[in-house]
Amino acid sequence: MELWYTEEHTDNVRFSIKVDEHLYTGQSEFQRIDVFKAKEFGTFFTLDGLMMVTEKDEFIYHDMIVHVPMATNPKIKNVLVIGAGDGGTVRELTRYATIEKIDMVEIDRMVVDVCRRYLPQTACKLDDPRVQLFFEDGLKFVRSKENTYDLIIVDSTDPFGPGEGLFTKEFYGNCYKALKEDGILVNQHESPYYESYAKSMQRAHKRIKEFFPICRVYQAHIPTYPSGHWLFGFASKKYDPLTDIDERAWNSLGLQTKYYNTEIHKGCFALPNYVKELLVRAGE
């Protein structure tokens, strides 16, 4: 018998992984949660059937969403993480001794519970004393904050379902308000390749640009996400990730990383022409 997990990346394109074992399935208040075990990707989990994290390639995503802003401003102390129920983003953040406080806001408690049980590789640092978990809507949480954080990381699902509010103008505006005057916003920025993802990416870029004077997009190669070509947004009130990166400071920390390095940091902001064009056209 063969068991395959399949995600439809578009109506006409499918991505499949051969599954060894279906470890868990459950329906939370917000979404369906599944955990699988596979030879090629190890344990992986999906929300409403969409790939979130695999043991094999999660390092790419989590390296890139955390170390790029941290190398830009090593003085970051107070961080807000929105989404990120698998814990991988928090795990990378806790490697910085200089960070004093990490608030993590995940709407779905069940995602965190399931990941603690099946994905200790990413969920292992959720009990760090600097981490405080809030189980509520990120849009609601950030609304009440003003001038509080040095860094906000939006590690969300796609902009439909529970993540929809995290791609809106009101969300980015409230993030702007919640950041200090040298604050940085980094977000999961969808993919430029397939049309429906590209539309979400353009919309997000347009919305963020309305608030932040510095607004850049960087890329990484993530094999299990649609098209494999994934983008992140970097927005800031003060720091430019290309000119303000403190290479010596970051390298002197001696962090062992599997994907990120300061050369990648400088290179990942160089985008293919069609992506640049999409971003320019996002404002239209």
Partner: peptide, 15 residues
């Protein structure tokens, strides 16, 4: 979730 969007937008419109 939709109501959160309305409330947050009103908060932004005021700001």
């Amino acid at each position: 979730l939709a109501l959160e969007r309305l409330v947050s937008s009103l908060s932004e419109i005021k700001r």
